[in-house]
Amino acid sequence: MKIKTEAGERHVLAITVDNEAGVLAKITGLFTARGYNIESLTVADITADHALSRITIVTSGPPPIIDQIIAQLDRLVPVHKVIDLNDAGEAHVEREIALVKVAGTGDKRIEALRMADVFRAKVVDTTLTSFIFEITGTSDKVDRFIALMRECGLVEVGRTGVVAIARGSEAL
């Protein structure tokens, strides 16, 4: 017997929660306990009084599972609001930051700098044998930049994961 898995679509969820100890563990634990995917997760408090945190989760699953994830999140006591930014009519902006360290000399070093320029990546640190680039954009763009840097002496990457927000004047 083989165990079957279902293909899914990518969704970005924005969740506001009480900024309290254990809330993040509750959210991530829900995903592991129920077998949902987390592709990326970011969290930071977002209000002046530090009472609320906003969590952005990129997940994937078939539509009924996405609905179920939202309903399961929504019933957790410390969760205030859950928004699926991929919902119809909810156009949104996604950004991710990566810090990309490239080491090398000669042509590869020049090529790395040129491509960073094309991608509008900033140099935030440099030595005679290395650069650290800061790149901001969609996850796709970051992926593509990192893939190119592999050819130019990539040694280390740090990524933030996605933050996202709906377009237009309405708040979450």
Binding site: D67, Q68, A71, D74, R75
Partner: peptide
Amino acid sequence: IDRSSINK
């Protein structure tokens, strides 16, 4: 009473 029970 639990929305997550619906369509689960």
